[in-house]
Design a protein around this nucleic acid. Structure first.
Length: 595
RNA sequence: GGGGGUGUAGCUCAGUUGGUUAGAGCGAUCGCCUGUCACGCGAUAGGUCGAGGGUUCGAGUCCCUUCACUCCCGCCA
């Protein structure tokens, strides 16, 4: 045989190959030893082929003793399986390979974790032996999916006329945003590079440089704490930017791209092909969150006004409302027959979340309208009528009420909306519900310091003609700033950028930056905008989260090849690690570690 | 920085009210078995019960401290 390692991969052989001599290479996935006959499942990236040997073969004893996950090449003849022994679960299930000879290409020690198993394993072992973990079927397929999704997106973007460019990894620290990863400069003692949190300024410079449409599968680095859907340190964005566009032009491109990607790579249906738009203000009121899960049909309503009525006797809420709290509610359809435990569980759950609980009652009508449940008695029939008008509730529906200050109220009603919908099984897990969240405010007030700050991206364009914007009421200024949300997960945010230097200075001054500050911190940007900048805008969908949705995974490590753990350590490569005194000296760094 | 969960054999887990020598499945080693595909059967080895301290006649189990992993809050323009 002329080939050294293989004539076929482990997912290739079919009935047509019967009686051919073949050479396969792969890992021993599983052995089934019958004493006088031995079955070997040989696995590679492509699939599994069953190989068989009997005791008359001189290699029998040796193969019988070979460990699982040993890499071997097997020489043999393709033979037919009898009808009863065909395995329909693998593509090569109609044939098997009668082993003539075999060779060990890579031996294997006793395994710290089994590869052939659907069991779940602790993260630290999986990450330490990631190369074994990645052999396992599910995660192996997730990583392949990720590759295919990225290739597909690249092709689509090229189709749509975008050019792919690389931007620097060593760049400068910026004052806004997340904590930077810093890299000391040897040639410039005492100075540091920062890894980019996103190629934000570079992509704008690319537009100013006249390239019109840019994209990149861009690594982004932010030194913040991890979550299940957030890697510590690094993640990838489909970063894109376009010149001479308005918000709608960006929306068209991204919708086209996401619709085709999600249709291609998932069985799940898209609830909307044209993504609905929700204003930030509406999102916060109706869903309590700027990343609403639109699969969830429940809506939050504000009924604060009810608690000013004289025929409402719910004194705790009335007192809180007088001191500036608000009351918001969630109505559930036709839940009059739900057991008491259903309601009490939700109330108990709310208390666990740190809220004072959720009051509830059910709308009933005998002769007159009444509220059934612990707090129902505090409402007159007329006030109940009014609540029904405000919320669209009907007889037989129930209502959950929360009373608090705005931010806290949004938080608890948002959580409650999700909790109640899950308890009632109202969320359809078989769909993707995309939406745009639009009209973000340009500024917000820090609740602790009372300072005005940029609420999102300081480079966003404020809405309205620049000479008509009322800068005296900065909190009322909206921005051409938008997010894409899918099933309650924030996929990306973007904006039409502010390309007018004077307007930029003005907005920065509201956030407390002088002209000098801006010139210094964003010199590259502001300088470039002064030499003929086109109007432009873009967005940056998160690749990891897109793949998570497509792979139906809740944890980002399931779609990341070599992730770090929650403490930002790479257990396989032992990063971060100490470095030599020589290295530190070259960088003019002294360590002062608190013990 | 704060809160919750978990930690027992190489791996996944059980372990009752504090009570004799800490168990099971998979894996490993040895033996038997010619049609399995999670093959089957028998035997053997394998344990600092995360670590340290305390209570007790006696601690895997109760208490305190601490470490690791994980989930959440803060943070993430």
């Amino acid at each position: 045989m002329s080939k050294k390692y293989r004539t076929h991969n482990c997912n290739e052989l079919r009935r047509e190959d019967l009686n051919n001599d073949v050479l396969l290479s792969g890992w021993i996935n599983k052995k089934r030893d019958h004493g006088n006959i031995l079955f070997i499942d040989l696995r590679d990236n492509y699939g599994i082929t069953q190989c068989i040997i009997d005791k008359d073969n001189l290699n029998f004893k040796k193969l019988e003793k070979t460990q699982l996950e040993t890499v071997v090449s097997i020489e043999g003849k393709v033979i037919k399986r009898s009808k009863e022994t065909i395995n329909n679960e693998i593509d090569t299930g109609e044939i098997e390979v009668a082993i003539k000879n075999f060779r060990i290409l890579g031996s294997c020690k006793e395994l710290p974790l089994p590869v052939f198993s659907d069991q779940e394993y602790s993260e630290d072992i999986r990450l330490k032996y990631r190369f074994l973990d990645l052999r396992r079927k599910k995660i192996h397929e997730n990583i392949i999916l990720r590759s295919k999704v990225i290739s597909f997106i690249r092709n689509e973007m090229a189709e749509l006329g975008f050019l792919e460019f690389q931007t620097p990894i060593l760049t400068s620290s910026s004052p806004e945003g997340a904590r930077d990863f810093l890299v000391p400069s040897r040639l410039n003692p005492g100075k540091f590079y920062a890894l980019p949190q996103a190629p934000q300024q570079f992509k704008q410079l690319i537009m100013v440089s006249g390239f019109d449409k840019y994209f990149q599968i861009a690594p982004c680095f932010r030194d913040e704490d991890a979550r299940a859907d957030r890697s510590p340190g690094e993640f990838y964005q489909l970063d894109l930017e376009m010149s001479f566009v308005e918000q709608e032009d960006v929306f068209d491109v991204v919708e086209k791209l996401l619709v085709s990607t999600f249709k291609k790579f998932s069985e799940k249906k898209l609830l909307f092909n044209k993504f609905p738009k929700v204003t930030y203000k509406d999102a916060m009121l109706k869903y309590g969150s700027d990343k609403p899960d639109l699969r969830n049909p429940l809506i939050i309503n504000d009924i604060t006004e009810i608690f000013f009525r004289d025929d409402v006797y719910f004194e705790i809420f009335k007192k809180l409302v007088k001191s500036g709290s608000m009351v918001r509610c969630i109505v559930t359809k036709n839940t009059r027959d739900k057991p008491r435990s259903f309601f009490d569980n939700i109330d108990k759950w709310a208390k666990e979340q740190g809220a004072s609980g959720l009051a509830y009652f059910t709308f009933e009508k005998d002769k007159t309208l009444s509220g059934k449940g612990p707090v129902g008695k505090f409402f007159s029939p007329e006030s109940l009528e009014e609540i029904m008008k405000l919320t669209g509730a009907e007889i037989g529906d129930s209502i959950f009420l929360a009373c608090s200050k705005k931010t806290e109220l949004e938080k608890i009603t948002s959580l409650a909306r999700d909790k109640i919908a899950r308890d009632l099984e109202l969320i359809d897990e078989r769909v993707f519900a995309f939406c745009w969240v639009v009209d973000y405010p340009m500024f917000e007030k820090d609740e602790l310091t009372n300072k005005i700050e940029f609420s999102h991206n300081p480079f966003s364009m404020p809405q309205g003609e620049s000479d008509k914007i009322n800068f005296d009421k900065p909190l009322d200024i909206l921005a051409y700033q938008y997010d894409i949300v899918c099933n309650g997960i924030e996929l990306s945010s973007g904006a039409i950028r502010n390309h007018i230097p004077e307007l930029m200075y003005k907005l920065f001054s509201i956030a407390g930056y002088t002209k000098n500050d801006v010139d210094e911190k964003f010199s590259g940007m502001i300088n470039a905008l002064s030499y003929g900048a086109p109007p432009h805008g873009g967005i940056a969908p998160g690749i990891d989260r897109i793949v998570m949705l497509l792979a139906n995974e809740k944890n980002i490590r399931e779609v990341t090849m070599f992730p770090m753990n929650q403490n930002a350590q790479d257990l396989l490569m032992n990063a971060p690690s100490e470095v030599s005194d020589k290295q530190l000296k070259e960088l003019n760094i002294n360590l002062k570690i608190k013990k």
